[in-house]
C-alpha cells in the first residue's frame, strides 16, 4: 500500500510540470474562445431579435447549424477540411476558431432568450421618452438582458472549459494533450487520466466559485435570471 502510494506520488511529481503547462494552454484556449464567442454572440443575438428579416434568418441558420452538429466534427472540418478550400489554419487557430464559432451560437441563443424575456413595456416606455429603437435597445433593453443572461453565461464558461478538452485530437498540447503523451510515456493511463480529471475538477470548481461571486456583485433587486 505504502509502496503503491509512493509510486503515485513519484508519478505525480514527474507529470505535474507538463500538466501545468497543459493547464495554461487549456485556460488560454477557453478564455480566447469565450471572447471570440462573445464578439460573435452579442451582435448575432441582437440581430436575431432586432435585425432585418434576412439577418434574423441568417443568424438563425448559423445557430441551428452549430447546435445541431457535434463539436468534434466541426473541429475536424475546420482543421482538416478548410485547407481544401485554400484556408490552412494552425492547430491553435483552428481550435480558437471552432470553439469561438461554437460558443458564439450558444451565446447568441442565450442572449436572444434574455432579450425576449425583458417585458415589452420597457421598450414602450423608452420609446415614449423619445429614445430611438437603437437607443432603447442600448440603454434599456440590453443592460437588463445582459444581467438576465449572466447565469446562462456562467454555465457557458464552465462548459467551454470542458469543451476545450477535445482539441488535443488535433494535437494541441492542452491538459488532455499532455496527458495523452504522458500516459504512453509512463504506461500508466489510468492514474494519469485520473490526475487530469482532478485538475479539471479543481479548475471547474474555482471558475464556478468566481462566477457565483460575480453574479452576486452584479445583482440588481427585482432583476434576476430566476422566474419570479
Amino acid at each position: 500500500m505504502d509502496e503503491k502510494m509512493e509510486r503515485v506520488v513519484e508519478l505525480f511529481g514527474a507529470v505535474a510540470p507538463l500538466l501545468w503547462q497543459g493547464t495554461g494552454v487549456t485556460l488560454q484556449i477557453a478564455a480566447l474562445s469565450l471572447l471570440l464567442g462573445m464578439a460573435i454572440g452579442l451582435p448575432a443575438g441582437i440581430a436575431r431579435v432586432y435585425g432585418p428579416r434576412w439577418l434574423q434568418q441568417a443568424t438563425g441558420t448559423y445557430v441551428v447549424l452549430v447546435q445541431g452538429t457535434p463539436l468534434l466534427i466541426q473541429l475536424f472540418l475546420v482543421y482538416y477540411g478548410l485547407p481544401d478550400l485554400g484556408l490552412t489554419l494552425g492547430r491553435l487557430e483552428a481550435a480558437f476558431l471552432t470553439l469561438g464559432l461554437n460558443s458564439g451560437a450558444y451565446q447568441a441563443e442565450y442572449l436572444r432568450g434574455a432579450l425576449q424575456a425583458v417585458p415589452v413595456g420597457q421598450m414602450t416606455a423608452a420609446r415614449a421618452l423619445g429614445m430611438s429603437q437603437g437607443q432603447a435597445v442600448r440603454s434599456i433593453v440590453l443592460p437588463q438582458a445582459l444581467r438576465l443572461v449572466l447565469p446562462a453565461w456562467s454555465n457557458e464558461v464552465v462548459a467551454m472549459l470542458k469543451y476545450t478538452a477535445v482539441v488535443f485530437l488535433i494535437a494541441v498540447p492542452d491538459l488532455m494533450g499532455q496527458a495523452k503523451i504522458l500516459a504512453s510515456r509512463y504506461f500508466a493511463p489510468i492514474p494519469i487520466y485520473l490526475i487530469v480529471a482532478v485538475f479539471y475538477i479543481v479548475l471547474v470548481g474555482i471558475t464556478y466559485g468566481v462566477l457565483r461571486q460575480l453574479e452576486r456583485r452584479l445583482r440588481v433587486p427585482g432583476l434576476t435570471g430566476e422566474p419570479t
Binding site: 441551428v64 447549424l65 447546435q67 445541431g68 452538429t69 457535434p70 466534427i73 466541426q74 475536424f76 472540418l77 482538416y80 477540411g81 478548410l82 485547407p83 481544401d84 478550400l85
Partner: peptide
Amino acid sequence: LEPFVAFGIALLLYLALTL
C-alpha cells in the same frame, strides 16, 4: 484525401439526425 467533403457529409448527416 478530401477531408472537407468527408467531414462536411458527416456534419450534414449529424444535422439531419439531430433535427
